[in-house]
Write a protein that binds this DNA or RNA. Structure first.
Lengths: 219, 219, 219, 219
DNA sequence: TATGAATGAGTGTTCATTCAT
DNA sequence: TATGAATGAACACTCATTCAT
């Protein structure tokens, strides 16, 4: 907002080395998460975060050069939690199993803190953040890898498919979380339907004598 | 303080009676759209809108009692454009054709002004607005109607399906618009794949001897 | 408030000659009174007055060059009502009776529209208005006349006494009106006690062998 | 929006802990007093107060959550000065002496800063403030206590008398201050005349063979 | 290194007043 | 003469950020 934040980079100001610093950083991040959950974008301000973290506003700025850096660090924290879970999808025997693993991880992640996840999804898409976070879309790469497995319908443009899948998963899961859904299994099943349906519908060749969903290209 | 002056705080303040007013209102709304597109949430403030509309800030507040009312009016304007297009889906002969019509309308709408559409989708979900806009989610009802057509895979919970479909459509289309995609046909095809795939995967009974997408329930 | 109101005099812009104008002026004044009563200083604005009067804001400014002129006209209207009543005090046979008449008139006036009377008393004291209204304090002159009657305790400084009496009457009556008192007789009795007590206590010579209130000068 | 941030909206926002803060608060309050004196209600705005206090507008809002809270704090500051003086009236040997002490304190208080005192008296009566300040009307209770002393004319309704006395004292003193009177003794004498006269005139029984003011009930 | 007081540009909103129709 | 749309200065208040202690 207020003008003169040009020279400040978006990464945490100092790598915390001492355990006390690490704790402080962690408590600030968790406070940021809680403020965002409780008060939304409107109430998400650095003073509120510092207060809830039990540190002074000065300390907050010791660890984060500005508000954006704080937000980005929070996005990073949440994304990493998801990714360590999602990466294990690669261990699955089949592509379908891997994809299901990925979906389940996403659903679990989103329903753990639905409000937070939804708001961070929105923040994440802000142009100022895209640049800084570009490296983070590792999960799209992960999805591309999964999509190349033999047992899944082959995709002519796996990157496009990966992005579509991420987008539709987010759409469904965010909306479900917003409505207060908590049934992981039910939600996962619907997401699988969408994802596998999409894959079948956009396949460049058939898989294992399976039938394409014949409705997709009519009209 | 006063007492007798609180009508409904989120609706437009005065019906413009003179043609001059109608123009002013229209120019304010269009300015709001442009400011949102050009400057995002950050830059979306009433002074900027008035300036771009070429009217004084006082004029803006003569027609919109506050910023929220302006945002809502803008959402209404955009939603209505989409809905008049989408409703015609009901004229289609088959359910599949109707659904495809709906999808095409959504894609067309979103790609017409992708940034605006995306930002309004986000605004729309803010709790303060949900209430006021609840009537607007008419398209979910429209979708439910379409989903009951015979030729589409029957859904045990059509409302859930409708919401999921809206959510995943939005997800895919918003993300595509964000990346700058402009190919309506390609995007529509992928959305159809997702939607019809989802329907097949969540169907409660088979349609016309068709096979379900067998991948969905494994794992 | 907003700057450029220098050249505007405080008297009504035009003497209404046609009956329609007179009606309009009257309706504006009554609307002003009602808005002030209902919404206090906070809600007392020219647009609200015009709306309640059922005329356009432009018409209001046709008859009153600015807000102050409107307020002053309202004060005048109310003061005149009181004065035509109060002047009749001079007809009373004795000074005491005249004073009692004056007091009763003041109480009646104030309790007729207590909120309005109180707020106008406050407005009246604003420096911008003092000048314009100086002529209006006719009732102080009236009081001086009454105070010179033989049967009342003679005052060395009748003008000072007159002002004190007006001030204390207002104080008591306004406060009573504010608390919702409606009993004219009770209130009049207390005001008489205060006024006649004051006169006795400040008398420069005794009246008709009466005793001074002995408490006044001790301590 | 947010939820967890509405303490009590009219009390000072933070207790100043550092001495620096205490100074700031004091300077803001004194600036508020001076702005009110110099510019009246019209010119009494938070920016002007901050400017005169030599602090930023942000600092003002760090200590006072809104303009009303500032006004209330100012009223409190002034009232307390008066009350510590007035309470000592209870030490006086006789009721009459106590009452005279009370009157003298009020006159002293009001003439110390007449304009300020007058404007604050008006503010004090605004409905929004009555609630918050209700505790402050301690001096009415004080007056009731004094009125019960043996040597004063007994009052059937001491609370009513107390309120009337406060109101008439204010009326006389405010008006005197407004006219620029500075002679404490002269003014006190007149106020005493009014108050003791009132008491004599409303007495429910005679005091120590004294005579009632016989003028009161004639007419 | 931590604190929290201080800063001030910026934002939403009001309302007295003007003037084209 | 009446209307009401338009104006814009002014005001209450917020919040990211700095810096003396």
């Amino acid at each position: 907002m207020s003008g003169f934040q040009k020279p400040s980079p978006l990464r945490p100001r100092k790598k915390p080395r001492q355990p006390r610093s690490a704790e402080t950083v962690a408590s600030i991040l968790e406070a940021a998460a809680q403020v965002l959950e409780a008060a939304g974008f409107e109430g998400f301000n650095t003073n509120a975060v510092a207060r809830r973290a039990g540190v002074s506003i000065g300390s907050l700025y010791q660890y984060f050069p500005n508000k954006e850096a704080l937000t980005i660090a929070l996005i990073r924290r949440e994304t990493e939690r998801f990714q360590t879970d999602a990466v294990q999808a690669l261990e699955e025997a089949s592509g379908a199993a891997a994809m299901s693993h990925f979906i389940a991880a996403a659903v679990r992640h989103q329903l753990r803190r639905p409000v937070l996840a939804r708001l961070l999804d929105i923040e994440e898409s802000r142009p100022e953040f895209r640049r800084e976070l570009s490296g983070l879309q590792a999960y799209e790469q992960l999805l591309v890898t999964i999509l190349r497995r033999d047992d899944l319908p082959a995709q002519a443009r796996p990157e496009v498919a990966a992005r579509d899948i991420v987008a539709m998963m987010r759409g469904i899961i965010d909306a479900a979380g917003e409505r207060g859904e908590r049934d992981l299994n039910d939600l996962s099943r619907r997401v699988r339907a969408a994802v596998f349906g999409y894959l079948a519908g956009t396949a460049s060749r058939n898989v294992s004598a399976g039938e394409p969903a014949p409705e997709c290209e009519q009209v």
